[in-house]
Nucleic acid binder design. Sequence first.
DNA 1: ATGAAAGCGCTAACAG
DNA 2: CTGTTAGCGCTTTCAT
Lengths: 338, 338
Amino acid sequence: MVVRERPTLEAVARRAGVSRATVSRVVNGSTTVAVAIRDAVNQAVEELGYVPNQAARSLVTQRTESIALILPETASRVFSDDLFFPAVIRGVSAELEAADKQLVLMMAGSAASHDRVERYAMAGHVDGVMFASMHGADPLPGSLARLGIPVVCSGRPMSPPVTPIPYVDVDHFGGVAQAVQHLLGTGHRRIATIAGPQDMVAGIDRLSGYRAALDAAGLATHIAIGDFTRESGVRAMDQLLANDPALDAVFVASDMMAHGALQALKDAGRRVPEDVAVIGFDDFEISRYSDPPLTTVRQPIVDMGRTMARQMLGLVNDEPDVPQAVVLPTELVVRSSA
Amino acid sequence: MVVRERPTLEAVARRAGVSRATVSRVVNGSTTVAVAIRDAVNQAVEELGYVPNQAARSLVTQRTESIALILPETASRVFSDDLFFPAVIRGVSAELEAADKQLVLMMAGSAASHDRVERYAMAGHVDGVMFASMHGADPLPGSLARLGIPVVCSGRPMSPPVTPIPYVDVDHFGGVAQAVQHLLGTGHRRIATIAGPQDMVAGIDRLSGYRAALDAAGLATHIAIGDFTRESGVRAMDQLLANDPALDAVFVASDMMAHGALQALKDAGRRVPEDVAVIGFDDFEISRYSDPPLTTVRQPIVDMGRTMARQMLGLVNDEPDVPQAVVLPTELVVRSSA
DNA sequence: ATGAAAGCGCTAACAG
DNA sequence: CTGTTAGCGCTTTCAT
C-alpha cells in the first residue's frame, strides 16, 4: 500500500506559486481572490489531491462541524427491535444532513462509555451535544453546558439543572388523558397501567397522568412498572392479572410493552378488547399489524429528533430566538384493541 | 451561561509550577515523572477541570482514536425495521467499545452525503474506515486505502480493487445450497427465488447460488428481484405467482423479503408450507414468531461486525497478522415454513 | 527527571 | 487583492 504523504496547504501554495494564505482563501471560498489565481490554486489542489487537515483547522477555528447525539443506553438496546431510537435518529439525521453537519452518534450505556463520551465532548470533538433517552438526573448535560458547549435534550431534564438547558418533549399528560377518557367512555372501570421506568421523565409523566385521570374519575389505580421493553410488558401484564383478575382495561406506557401485554393476555386466555382493552403509547408502524391492531397514543418521535436538531443548529449558529422548551402534541389513535 | 475559558496545558503547568512538557507527560501517563510532581500536576488538572484539546493533540499525533463505520444507505433505511444494520452496528460497537475507540457512524445514502463522508474521512477525522452494505463498485474504499487510511469492508468488494482491501463476508453459496437441498429433499420441484438487489454482493452471490443449485438438479429457475425490503418481497412474490401459479417453493434472499412473501402468499390464498414452502436468509429473532415460523439460513451478522472491527483494530495497531479475508459460515435453521 | 524549543497544518489579522 | 506573521494547544526530541 503506497502511503503518499498527505499534501499540505504549503505544498499547494508552492505548486500554485502563491502564499498559504491565498490557498486558504480559495479553499474556504473567499470571494476576494483574483480569478486567475483562484483557478491556478484549484488546479494545484486537484493535482495534489489536497484535503484540508481537520485537526489543524479545528485548532484555530474552534469548530468541528460535527454534532453529537448521546444516548445513555447500551448499543444492544439502541440497536434492538425497539423503534424509538431509530425514529429519533432519523429525525436528527435529516436536519443535520440538511445543514451539512456530521452526526456523531454515541452510546453511553455503561459507566466506562459514559466517561469516554464525556471526555470526547469536553475535548472539543464536537460543536454541540444532544441527549435523548436520559435516565435519572444525569449531571453530564449540565456539566457540558457550563463549559460553554451547546446542549439540547429530548425529554425535559429531570431535575431542573442549575444551568437551564433547552429541550423538546411531548405532551405526555394530554396523551394519557385522552387514552383514559377513551377507556372511561367505553365503559371500563377497572383500568390498570403498565408504567415505564421511573428514572425517566417519559415513564414518570405518563404514570402521573394515569394517576391524575383515575383520581379525577374516582377510580382505584392498578400499577405495574416496566422498562419499555417487550419482555417487561409481558411480566407486568402477568403481575397485573395476578393482582386483579377482573381488570377490564390497561393503559401501557409504550407500544413495545403493549405488544408484550397483548401476548401475555392471549397466553392468559383473555380476549382483546372484549375481556381487556389495551392502549399503548408511541404509534409505531408495526402496531397497526399487531393482533389485534393497537389503539395507541401517537407521539411524534421523528419530529422530536428534528426539533432537537433545529434547536441545536440555532445554538451553534448563535441565533437569538432558540426556544427554551418546545412541547409537541400527542393524539389518541383508535384501533381495535380498545 | 458562564462560558469559562477552557484551561490549557499552559494553565495547568503554571498552576503546578512545572513546564508544559511535564504536564503532558503526566496526562499521558508517562512513568518517568517524580511522584510528588505527578501528584501536584494531577491536582492542578483536577482543580482546573482540564481536558486535553483533541484537535491540538491530533495535529501532532496524527491520531484521533475514533473509527468510522460508513453505511452507503439513507438514515431512514438504516434506522428502519430492517434488523440487518442494527446487528452489524452492535457487533462493531462491542469491539470498539472494548478497545476504547469512538465509533463514528456515517450514513451516505445520497451523493451529497457520500461526498461529505469522503471529505470527512480524508480530512483525518478518523483513524480508519469500515464499510458495510456496499452498492456497486464504490470507489471510496479504494481511494481511502490509497491515501493510507486503514479500510475494511463487510461483504467482499464487488470489483477486486487495485488496492486490495481486507474484508469479512459470509458463505452465501453454502447457505443457499443447504436451503435448496432441503427443498429438494422435501419433494419440491418448482422452486423459485426472490433475489436481493443485483448491485450488492449479497444479492448477486445468493442468486448465483440458487442458479447453480437448480442447474445441478436439472430444474428450471424462476426469478424475481427485490431490494431486501419487506415491500419488495410482497411485490416479487406476487410477480412469481403470476408467472407460475404452480410453484411449490421459494427461496428468499432475506428474512425481510421473506416476511413480505409470507404475507403475499397468505393474501393469495396459498398455505405455507403445504402449498408453497418458504425459506429466508438472515435468521432474525422475529422470524421465529412469524406465521408460520420461518425456515431460514442463519448468517452471523453480529459476528461480521465484530470481525470487521477486529480487523480494523489490527490495522490501526500495525499488527502483522490481519487476515485479508474471512468468510463466516452459514447454516440452515429449519422451522415450519419449509 | 525536567525544561526549552521546535513544530504539527491551518486561519486570521494586519500590512502593503 | 495578496503576502507576512503570529499563533491555536499539544507532543516530542534534545539538552540539561
